[in-house]
Design a protein around this nucleic acid. Structure first.
Length: 286
DNA sequence: AGTGTCGCCTGAATGC
DNA sequence: TGCATTCAGGCGACAC
């Protein structure tokens, strides 16, 4: 499920386990995910210290500190559709499960595993200085939770676009980190039809949309954070938390906003746009 | 250049 | 119960 909030939650869950630890062993249990694992990945990482973790768009960035022989590197993990990072509780007793593809053992006993059944994920290892120029990063749009991401900014980025606004929100070059769920959720909250041409939506509605994007993402991160805190990763896996959505996967349900306005008979519809499911209320999203 | 469709994989849910 | 079909939250390659 990983969109921006889930990836953020994974980063926050991993940080206390990985930060300031020395990488002891990196085990790759196959050659590739969607793309090959980086050349000599284990050799380039083992013995080095993790300085901190961060996130850009839907990418987890594990920063590896510079040392006598290397400048700072970044181990980049993208979870694709089905990827999961797991903190193994009893590292010494770790037995690989099906689809465990990458196992990072830390000095002191911590073990972190990347499991990805569908293998749509990817792992990169890049110098931090070259990261911004890497093809995965160079065209990424702004981070939606930065204060510099405003209605004005989004309005400019959508200007002239003929594609429907739902599809445009999924374009990582327009804005980074929004996936299929939160695109539907944000448009619903802002009361904007997913069918509208992106370039035709007025400035005022785009302002509302930016507010809604920030709101749905922030609420989801909050839900993820409380999962970390409350459940303490019952199974050690990170990022897949229970969260209820207003419209996503609610085809046929009563529209919550219309119900609030006393109109009980308006329901959530499901349509397909650019081969992806979209959920919305035709009555209150114009 | 901008836009829409397809396929990469496996597993879960559904239908017969 | 078993087997086939459909669908999934990402993203890049490709065709137009």
């Amino acid at each position: 499920m990983p969109e921006l909030p889930e990836v953020e939650t994974v980063c926050r869950g991993l940080e206390p386990v990985m930060k300031s630890k020395i990488i002891d062993k990196v085990l790759l249990r196959r050659k590739n995910l969607r793309i090959p694992f980086p050349k000599n990945m284990a050799g380039r990482l083992e013995g080095r210290k993790i300085s901190h973790l961060s996130r850009r768009a839907k990418y987890i960035l594990i920063h590896v500190a510079a040392d006598a022989h290397n400048e700072e590197d970044v181990l980049v993990v993208h979870l694709g559709m089905s990827g999961q990072m797991t903190i193994v509780k009893n590292g010494a007793g770790y037995k690989p499960l099906k689809h465990d593809h990458m196992v990072i053992s830390l000095k002191g006993g911590g073990v972190v595993v990347l499991n990805d059944a569908r293998r749509f994920g990817m792992v990169l290892l890049e110098k931090v200085s070259g990261l911004g120029g890497h093809q995965a990063f160079q065209h990424l749009g702004p981070e939606p939770l930065e204060s510099s991401f405003t209605g004005n900014v989004l309005h400019h980025r959508l200007c002239g676009k003929k594609a429907n606004i739902k599809t445009a929100l999924l374009d990582q070059r327009v804005v980074a980190g929004i996936g299929n769920i939160y695109a539907s959720e944000a448009l619903f909250e802002a009361g904007i039809s997913p069918l509208a041409s992106a370039g035709d939506v007025g400035a005022k509605k785009i302002d509302a949309l930016v507010t809604s994007i920030k709101n749905v993402l922030t609420c989801a991160i909050k839900a993820g954070g409380s999962t970390l805190k409350d459940y303490k990763q019952a199974d050690g896996s990170l990022g897949y938390f229970q969260h209820s959505f207003a419209v996503y996967d609610r085809e046929g349900d009563a529209c919550p906003r219309c119900v609030k306005n006393g109109k009980k008979n308006h329901t959530i519809h499901k349509i397909v746009q650019s081969a992806r499911a979209t959920y919305y209320c035709p009555h209150c999203q114009k």
